[in-house]
């Protein structure tokens, strides 16, 4: 099998991403579901780069004429799912930041209340 320049570069990038995903899963930077989903995307990419005709055959099998269109559709779906997951994670992160901020504000509250003698005590 002879590979052109684009295939060599694309394959290198996809293999690096796949390796990073596996490394991330082992180190628990990524959840199991995320790692499986990402791995499936990278493997599909590797297959598409090594056997371009496979995407065309698959596209025809599902009623799309060109393999490039199938890749575009799949890429759009993956991008949307990725965006959604990132957004959900960002919301959780914001929530955690707010809870942390709240705890700090309550812990460090400045209190100035009148004592029995009428003096003001300040913490």
């Amino acid at each position: 099998m002879s590979l052109n320049v684009f295939q060599i570069i694309a394959l290198g990038v996809l293999l690096a991403l796949f390796a990073t995903t596996i490394f991330g899963a082992v180190r628990h930077w990524l959840g199991r579901g995320e790692a499986i989903l990402a791995s499936m995307v990278w493997i599909a990419g590797i297959v598409a780069v090594l056997w371009p005709e496979a995407t065309t055959n698959l596209a025809r099998a599902v009623g799309i004429r060109r393999g490039a269109d199938l890749l575009l559709y799949c890429g759009s779906v993956v991008a949307m799912v990725g965006f959604l997951m990132t957004y959900i994670r960002l919301r959780r992160l914001r929530r955690d930041v707010t809870l942390l901020t709240r705890n700090m504000a309550i812990r460090d509250a400045h209190i100035s209340e009148p004592t029995a003698s009428g003096d003001v005590h300040t913490d």
Binding site: V97, T101, R102, M104, A105, I106, D108, A109, H110, I111, S112, E113
Partner: peptide
Amino acid sequence: ATYVLRHPI
């Protein structure tokens, strides 16, 4: 105020 709380951010 009696109590002043401050969000750091």
